Amino acid sequence: MELFQRLAEGHAAGITVVTPNPRLSRALISEFDSFQAAKGLTAWEAPDILPFGAFVERLWEDALYSELGDKLPLLLTPAQERLLWQQVIASSREGKDLLFTETAAVHCGDAWRLLHQWRVGEGRGNEDHSAFSEWVKQYEKQTLGDIDSARLPDLVAGLLDKLKKPRRLLAYAFDILPPQTREFFNACRRHGIEVTEVKPETTKTSSIRTSFPSGKEELECAAKWARARLEEGRARIGVVVPQLAQRRKEVVRVFSRVMQPGYSLPGAENAPLPFNVSLGEPLSNYPLVDAALGLLELSFHSVEFARASKLLRSPFLAGAESEMARRATLDARLRRNLGATVALSK
């Protein structure tokens, strides 16, 4: 592969590869390692392959620790961005009618990034559009003197003449370039960086379209299809599942049953499953972490009664076993006397 041959020259070649997403960066690094190992090498320079967002952030960090540092705005973390959106929404007139401001904050952050990526201008819309426009104005006021990931490429593009830059920048597998990304690459070209768009090697294939009565049957068939390909000795098999975050447990259950029957039977060998789900499970799904996060949340905010009840009966709190009956009695009493939300002050 020509790309790997160029990367094999090492950092002296001055090549940086940027990809649209982190998963593709990891896959490309893994393929490069296999390419080098196949040549009989035991050690080699790690290639400079990273997602576009991480590349822009690295340039910002270089500027931050240079003589420009005292003039640069601080970069908000994703958690800080989400909290600011949540505060803006909760304090607004429209936000008072929302049950879940956390979810609205996530959607606002996504919309904010799309606005900048695709250079979406102001326009007229429905009530949702009007509410979002007001939230954007308040968010911009809250972030004066700071910068977020959505606006960072525009900031860094104006600093390129003062930064240390790679000689060659390979934009790998960008099927669609949003205007903001294209403008950033053009700015790189103006400042002497050789920017090349590289497409993955294409292979001849065929496609078949079919339908199923339900999503469950479709998932079962996909698992059987994947197993058949695995038995044929295929090296790489991929299944794309819409809404994977919501269906992750179902996907793992179905693929485990089809790919490794009997995996959950008593006495079954605890062997690794022959598939990988690209979407990791959130830390908050682990009971111990969920209990710790719940305690922190209850310490500073009101929480839903169901959340407080779960904490009261949590096995991770000291004395959970010896006080089980008394905590259950207290929980029943609180259920009768308290409202839908609970705070420590109550």
Rank of each mutant, 00 (worst) to 15 (best):
V156M: 06
V156T: 06
V156R: 07
V156Q: 06
G158A: 09
G158K: 12
L159A: 04
L160A: 05
K162Q: 15
L163C: 05
P166T: 02
P166Q: 09
R167S: 08
R167E: 05
R168Y: 03
F174R: 12
D175Q: 15
I176S: 14
P179D: 02
P179V: 00
P179N: 03
Q180L: 06
Q180C: 01
Q180I: 00
T181N: 06
R182F: 04
E183D: 15
E183A: 15
F185N: 10
C188F: 02
C188Q: 11
R189N: 02
H191G: 00
H191L: 00
H191F: 00
H191R: 04
H191K: 05
I193W: 01
E194Y: 01
K199M: 10
P200C: 11
E201K: 15
E201C: 07
T203S: 10
T203Q: 11
T203I: 05
K204D: 08
T210V: 09
T210H: 11
P213Y: 10
P213H: 10
E218P: 01
L219F: 03
C221V: 10
A222G: 03
A223M: 05
K224N: 09
K224E: 10
W225V: 04
W225H: 13
W225L: 13
R227T: 02
R227Q: 08
R227I: 00
R227H: 06
A228L: 07
E231L: 11
E231S: 09
E231P: 01
E232H: 12
A235R: 15
A235P: 03
G238V: 12
G238P: 01
V240M: 14
V240G: 13
V240L: 15
V241E: 08
V241A: 11
P242S: 09
R247Y: 11
K249Y: 01
K249W: 03
K249S: 10
E250C: 01
V251N: 05
V252S: 08
R253C: 00
Q260C: 09
Q260M: 15
G262K: 07
G262W: 05
Y263S: 06
